[in-house]
Design a protein around this nucleic acid. Structure first.
Lengths: 120, 120
DNA sequence: AGACAGTACCTTGCAACACAAGGTACTATT
DNA sequence: AATAGTACCTTGTGTTGCAAGGTACTGTCT
């Protein structure tokens, strides 16, 4: 059972977990980026687009994040009827949101540059 | 006091916080990168090098992270006497650590590429 | 009409993690 | 003896991503 204890204790120490850690923090950036590019998007849209770009995001992550951005005044939404199911919440950027996105994008490029300096 | 409540509630919704979120998750990568490049490094070294690259990391973050990497078998250390204070813990990569670092670096480039696809 | 599948929304509880704040201990200088 | 400088480390807190579970609407097939 010692083996089990050890492998349980250090289960976190693997590349998959580290990759997950790296993904965190860029989700906000990506979501704002998608809404900006698409002009408007509803959650399932966003999940699909990110999946295509090979960044997996799930509902339990996305909904609270969208709510946060809405509460923060960066996003707004409107309900739109769908002819294939329940109505959808289409999110768009507010003026403040656009501004915020620009700053965040700049930060990403800076960070990216800094990391390159260190690891190349 | 309503104003205070609101500004406290949404204090998190700013670019500085988001930048901090983005930094998280790349720290492990950067630290391994520094140790790999320098062959060996002690914590204050690492803090200084990262500061130069404009990625701020503090002791309360670094020490637990180094311990995790040590426990995970990716790092090892040796004590080295200093003539300007207490002895230093010099960290080096283990074989497993080098392998892990390569994988993590590859993940970073993939992620970086994915983000570019989305936000450009 | 009733059952199902598909789509969409949302919440709760947990675990990981960065960080602020505080602490200990050694050396050299004043 | 006191101080400044360097180095190590721990505790507690807040934010967050995510697994798991739940509700509700629409159209289709018996």
């Amino acid at each position: 059972m010692q083996g089990t204890v050890l492998s349980t204790m250090f289960a976190f120490m693997n590349v998959e977990n580290a990759k997950a850690q790296m993904r965190k923090g860029i989700l906000e950036l990506c979501i704002l980026g998608i809404i900006e590019k698409e002009k408007e998007a509803y959650p399932s849209d966003i999940i699909q687009i990110m999946k295509k770009a090979e960044i997996i995001v799930v509902e339990g992550t996305l909904y609270p994040l969208l709510s946060r951005l809405k509460k923060g005044g960066l996003l707004q939404y409107k309900w739109v009827e769908s002819n294939s199911g329940p109505p959808r919440k289409y999110y768009t950027l507010t003026g403040e949101g656009s501004q915020y996105y620009l700053e965040l994008k700049a930060s990403w490029f800076n960070l990216s540059e800094s990391v390159s300096k260190i690891i190349k």
